[in-house]
Design a protein around this nucleic acid. Structure first.
Lengths: 117, 117
DNA sequence: GCGAGTGTGTAGTGTTTAGGAAACATGACG
DNA sequence: CGTCATGTTTCCTAAACACTACACACTCGC
């Protein structure tokens, strides 16, 4: 999963260009990990961090946590909880949507948001 | 999660009543774990087993793997993969459906199955 | 009463996860 | 030159995960 490291590195670099508070060290400090660890993460030398750390990192870099978690091979635990509460229902829905085009999924989202149940 | 152990124990016992091939030892052997381990699982003395072992157990006991995984605090990795491929889309949909009644989710499932995209 | 089969208790094992500590090298600048 | 600040490297580890090995005790059928 070098995807993860590259993504983080690129995002941070881009912020750093405009604002030197986005050095590796300062970002590491703000999200509560050691600089050495963040360095290894960016270079893909270690596995992506825990869910909690990933979310802190995403927020710090102004990225979507769900996307960053996905790059790290994870799924947010609050989503998992929703599924676990009604496993048959959600398993069926999600498998059904595996090959559906984005459009179709989006339509469902809207349909639900307009709360017509 | 003693839910898990109790569920497994009950399911196995019920099968065992009619068919003595469903002793703890024989089931353990068929799903490829040590009897002592399965015993501890049923009594909640250890955490629920890995995803792979859970699925084998579910099939052996003629139960829905997704349900058993859920009882074990897990979500099937193939579902996770679907989500990880389009994290924003699925995160939004699932969160939107968190409080929706079963009826509403079911309607979506049918809607999608009737493939109207 | 003994052998087969049943479930259980204790102890220990290898692997993975999720990092921390500290030293090192580089470059920029005043 | 000295001294920041930057990123990197090496080494280490505590805890959780997912089990195995094996001895023990009980009971049922013959």
């Amino acid at each position: 999963m070098t995807q993860f490291g590259t993504f983080v590195h690129t995002a941070r670099r881009s912020l750093q260009e405009a604002d030197r508070r986005y050095s590796l060290r300062q970002v590491a400090k703000r999200i509560g990990v050691e600089p050495g660890y963040l360095s290894k993460i960016e270079r893909g030398q270690v596995a992506p961090p825990s869910e909690a750390a990933t979310v802190r990192l995403a927020k710090e870099l102004d990225q979507d946590p769900d996307v960053l978690l996905a790059l790290g091979g994870k799924v947010s635990s609050d989503l998992q909880e929703v599924i676990r509460k009604r496993p048959r229902l959600f398993a069926q829905l999600i498998r059904e949507l595996r090959d559906a085009p984005d459009q179709a999924v989006l339509r469902l989202v809207r349909e639900v948001r307009d709360g017509d149940w």
